[in-house]
Design a protein around this nucleic acid. Structure first.
Lengths: 334, 334
DNA sequence: CTGAAAGCGCTTACAG
DNA sequence: CTGAAAGCGCTTACAG
């Protein structure tokens, strides 16, 4: 079909099949239609290559068939190598598959793009929004929730507005990792924390505090989940706290960076300093030595996020906050 | 606004402002309206938090304000660390910004998702589609083009259907890199090729052939642009062609992998074996030694892609294939 | 099972 | 500049 031709409409199909528009509509929507009419319609649709106009459908059904996953990050971090987003997306897609909804990704790195996304969502361009890896009390979350469009957050959403969320047990996972270090006899356990404007950063640090409470002085170096920040943090730790005999990093990438710095500084892992991470990225099994870490079920996280959003869209009740369990994976670095 | 409330419509605003719906529509669309009416409408809009229903607008304007960037890859490769996609997206966004179009990313990793995306596009859910990093003669490109929806491809699109495209000078860039190796006196230059079902893979290999034509025997090891594939390819080269004194890798990641294998095998770069890459990823400047490579203007690529698509949507003429120049960046690895 | 008709919420000639 | 009216292309009670 050349551009500029008007696309065929329901009417075109109806005329060709010798039935009413209502009947064509019913065939398209899988509603009961007598065999002969059905076949005539299906044939006409195939002959002229009819595809229903989505705007017209949306106008009456109030549904678009589009679900947005909003990634509130500059695109460079979204497309990093920690495999969080691809796995999350895979889980989300899997769940959406069954609901015949199309996933669209929207990057909300700049203020302009955030405004645009907010307007899009409120204008009804999508049926619902999933917010991933929020920082702080993101006004986008509040604005969307207030406008009444279905929205769920990955991890608890900070701020006054209630937004249903699905997260993983960051705190429990971190506590388990650090308790394991304690049980191995480590007496001076430091942590390399993630960004403290994100739930994952906050909760993993709290888990560390939980585990050493009352028995050790906390030693905290700040990172931002990236490998580079892990290296820098480890250098600071070696400088300022030379007695440290174990490190719990709030991400595997930071743990990797820390191990490299330790090695270069002449320390053996785990003999001199034990290292544990968080995430269980693929590479964690093949670092030297293989990394003890906390596995979070990212695929399941994506599936639950999508499921909760679909519930919300259908008007079903949803839990305000669902938490998925994490697992301590023991390897040779501790 | 609680869920379930009907959102306000043009009518609501019109009544409140004491004007007709047409006037409200004109205010929203920035058409001439007398001062007092305009102010009354703006006020009413603000008071009740009115946002136009996008489906209704689309139905009459035949525009959605949505542009899709389709990434025909399993999400794991899209979210890799070669920085191609984030930079491309940044360029695309920049251009779209001016046109008031919202970018949505659609991942086309599976057959199911490809079908879904095709139907979405044809159903008019988006105003146009940009296809990135196509493999082979992708049927998605053909199907979209045939259905008449505006579509542009990143790199020439293989197959019978004509799809306008924007690409970079892969062949010229590769030729320049290999000619540089020749000029440095290298007499046995191998290449680690990219996937040969992609234009970038094919053209970079052809550039290599161009440069050594008639003077050296080609030595080709197959890779797939990833670092791991570069390592494997380099190991094979060392095994089967121990005399090689230079390697042109069709991606920086593969070049990195190759350099590591060379170092472990006891070869010095560039003294024993020179290595050149393609892409100029950020890390290329800080490898050991810094990598000679071909820089491709990815941001510009994104901008041109978006610009061509916008042209197509506006019904303007577009060049069938635009090629952006690449630059040889000399560093210490050659 | 099927059709005529109303209606979803906008935009846009057409008059005035 | 402004309004009444038609129309974009569907779905869905409502009758039959």
């Amino acid at each position: 079909m050349a551009r500029g031709d008007r696309r065929p409409t329901l009417e075109t199909v109806a005329v060709r099949a010798g039935v009413s528009r209502a009947t064509v509509s019913r065939v398209i929507n899988d509603q009961p239609v007598a065999g002969p009419s059905r076949r005539a319609v299906e044939r006409a649709i195939a002959d002229i290559g009819y595809v229903p106009n989505q705007a017209a459908r949306s106008l009456v059904t109030q549904r678009t068939g589009l679900i947005a996953l909003v990634l509130p990050e500059p695109s460079t971090r979204v497309f990093s190598d920690d495999q969080f987003f691809p796995r999350l997306i895979q889980g989300v897609s899997q769940e959406l598959e069954t609901a015949d909804e199309q996933l669209v990704l929207m990057l909300a790195g700049s203020t302009a793009s955030r405004d645009r996304i907010q307007r899009s969502a409120v204008a009804g361009r999508v049926d619902g929004v999933m917010l991933a890896s929020l920082h702080g009390a993101d006004p986008l979350a509040a604005a969307l929730a207030k406008s009444g469009i279905p929205v769920v957050g990955n991890e608890r959403v900070l701020g006054s507005v209630e937004v249903p969320s699905v997260g993983v047990d960051n705190r429990g996972g971190a506590r388990a990792a650090v308790e394991h270090l304690v049980s191995r006899g480590r007496r001076r356990i430091a942590t390399i924390a993630g960004p403290l404007d994100m739930i994952a950063g906050i909760d993993r640090l709290d888990g560390y505090f939980d585990a050493i409470a009352g028995t050790q002085e906390p030693v905290v170096a700040q990172g931002d989940f990236t490998r580079e920040s892990g290296e820098a943090a480890m250098e600071r730790l070696l400088d300022e706290h030379p007695g440290v005999d174990a490190v719990f990093a709030a991400s595997d990438l930071m743990a990797e960076g820390a191990m490299q710095v330790l090695r270069h500084a002449g320390f053996r892992v785990p003999e001199d300093v034990a290292v544990a991470g968080f995430d269980d990225i693929t590479r964690a099994a093949c670092t030297d030595p293989p990394l003890t870490t906390v596995r979070q079920p990212i695929g399941a996280l994506g599936r639950h996020l999508a499921a909760q959003l679909l519930n919300l869209i259908s008007g079903n009740a949803v839990e305000p906050a669902r938490t998925l369990p994490t697992d301590l994976i023991l390897r040779d670095s501790t």
